[in-house]
Design a protein around this nucleic acid. Structure first.
Length: 419
RNA sequence: CGGGGCGUGGCGCAGUCUGGUAGCGCACUCGGCUGGGGGCCGAGCGGUCGCUGGUUCAAAUCCAGUCGCCCCGACCA
């Protein structure tokens, strides 16, 4: 499938005329996404591959802390939302079915999961529990903007913890927090964990994970050993830092957040358990969100250069972008074809092969735009010396691999880049 | 929701002020040349000018309404 002549990968030379954010421009130009309406985006195959990699990293780290994956519906009866007092939220999409029954399109899933937990959990013996899903969220945003950074429909990993008391919640919260650090590190982001307002979610504590990026809607105040959301600190740009240095305020993208909910949802929805003394108590909850699309856009905002995207290797749509400069029928093409088959086997499909009959400029420019970690070029010039050329997208280091050993050396180099 | 801007072949735009044959670049199709950074020549395809109504002999152009999209702000699980 990843031969370009058989792949749906439309790149464009010019960014959308009205795009501002770098990630917005590059994601459209690099053929990762296309717009359907305001705040509504389709993932094209390359973009979806990258997002699935982010999701897979999240899955692995959630499962590693005992958080189990499930799946809840987006379309939900309004009843639970009325009980929790969130039915009146303006951003909540509301609709009704043919019988006139009120429904909502969920913006998060506290109501749904708490509804189920209320029916299934009876005893302290059933706790603690941590569950998550990766599901679509719908929000009637007053102003969608910046490509994937603020949309009306988006995917979220939302996890929920259920504990018998505050100590249990603290433990779940810490586990999630540590998992978040591993997730964002593995995704190759620069990020800060900051305290946040509890906001409309209620509850007793919250943190946000903020990633510096020019297109960010938020701002963080940074100083040596210090990071804070500007909304919750009095420190301003140029102030002396708490641990020395000077405060710098930079725009940032909120890539995740974690909340101690307490009984904000368990009480109105009747999610209780019996403790050892036989007395009924509300379950103590936490919720933990990550926006994979924001992780993707942030990776681009933070890594891109003037030629295009520079993916962290962990979430690149493909590990290798193989370019054949020869066209079909020429002998150099056969060498490229063979290398493609070798790489495909060695890298279990992690190769995009540009086998188009386009000119070299177009192919090489597209490869820079897409930003896969390793570009391998098979052309007459190199082949005359018995080599293929490889270059690392980040940093631009060039390599010359003997044709016969090219696949093995490319794989070895990738292992080094990943390690 | 306030302010600003934009809707014209697939994409990017000109034409609108001053009503009268819809145009340019790119892309696309066909033929040929080219072949290490979006190359060249030639021939083509493709648009009820967002939508509705009005004015007029005549509307992309003027008037009214409406829908959509973008940017700034407000807002932001």
């Amino acid at each position: 499938m990843p031969r370009l002549t058989e792949t749906f990968w439309p790149t464009v030379r010019e960014p959308p005329a009205d795009a501002e954010a770098l990630s917005h421009k590059l994601m459209v130009r690099a053929g990762l996404i296309r717009q359907l309406g305001a705040g509504l985006w389709t993932y094209l195959p390359a973009g979806w591959r990258a997002q699935r990699k982010v999701e897979q990293i999240i899955r692995e780290e959630m499962e590693a802390i005992g958080c189990q994956e499930m799946l809840m519906p987006v379309l939900q009866p309004a009843e639970a939302w009325e009980k929790t007092g969130r039915y009146g939220i303006e951003e909540l999409f509301k609709l009704s079915d043919r019988k006139g029954a009120p429904l909502v399109l969920a913006m998060t899933h506290e109501e749904c999961i708490t509804h189920h937990i209320a029916r299934e959990v009876r005893s302290y013996r059933d706790l603690p529990l941590m569950l998550f899903h990766i599901q679509t969220k719908e929000r009637d945003e007053p102003r969608p903007r910046a490509g994937l950074l603020r949309t009306r429909e988006f995917t979220m990993k939302d996890a929920y913890s259920f504990d018998r008391d505050e100590e249990g919640l603290d433990r779940s919260y810490r586990l999630q927090s540590e998992a978040y650090e591993r997730i964002f590190d593995r995704c190759g982001l620069r990020w800060y964990r900051v305290e946040s307002d509890v906001g409309m979610m209620g509850g007793s504590g919250a943190h946000e994970y903020m990633a510096p990026g020019a297109a960010g809607e938020d701002a963080v105040a940074l100083a040596p050993g210090f990071a804070a959301n500007v909304e919750v600190t009095s420190l301003r740009d140029g102030d002396p830092g708490p641990n020395g240095g000077t405060v710098e305020v930079v725009p940032a993208i909120e890539i995740g957040n974690i909340f101690k909910l307490g009984s904000r949802y368990s009480e109105p929805l009747g999610a209780t358990f019996l403790d050892e003394e036989g007395s009924e108590r509300p379950i103590v909850m936490g919720s933990y969100g990550i926006g994979p699309a924001r992780v993707l856009a942030t990776a681009i905002e933070q890594g891109a250069d003037e030629r295009g995207i520079v993916w962290p290797t962990s979430i690149a749509p493909w590990q290798v972008h193989l370019v054949s400069l020869a066209k079909a029928g020429e002998p150099e093409r056969e060498a490229a074809d063979r290398l493609y088959e070798e790489l495909r086997g060695e890298l279990s499909g992690e190769v995009l092969y540009d086998d188009r009959d386009a000119g070299p400029g177009e192919k090489l420019t597209d490869a820079e735009l897409l930003g896969c970690p390793l570009q391998v070029v098979v052309g007459r010039r190199g082949l005359a010396d018995g080599i293929v050329e490889a270059s690392e997208r980040a940093g631009g280091t060039e390599h010359r691999f003997p044709v016969a050993a090219a696949a093995a050396q490319a794989v070895g180099l990738l292992q080094k880049l990943n390690g």
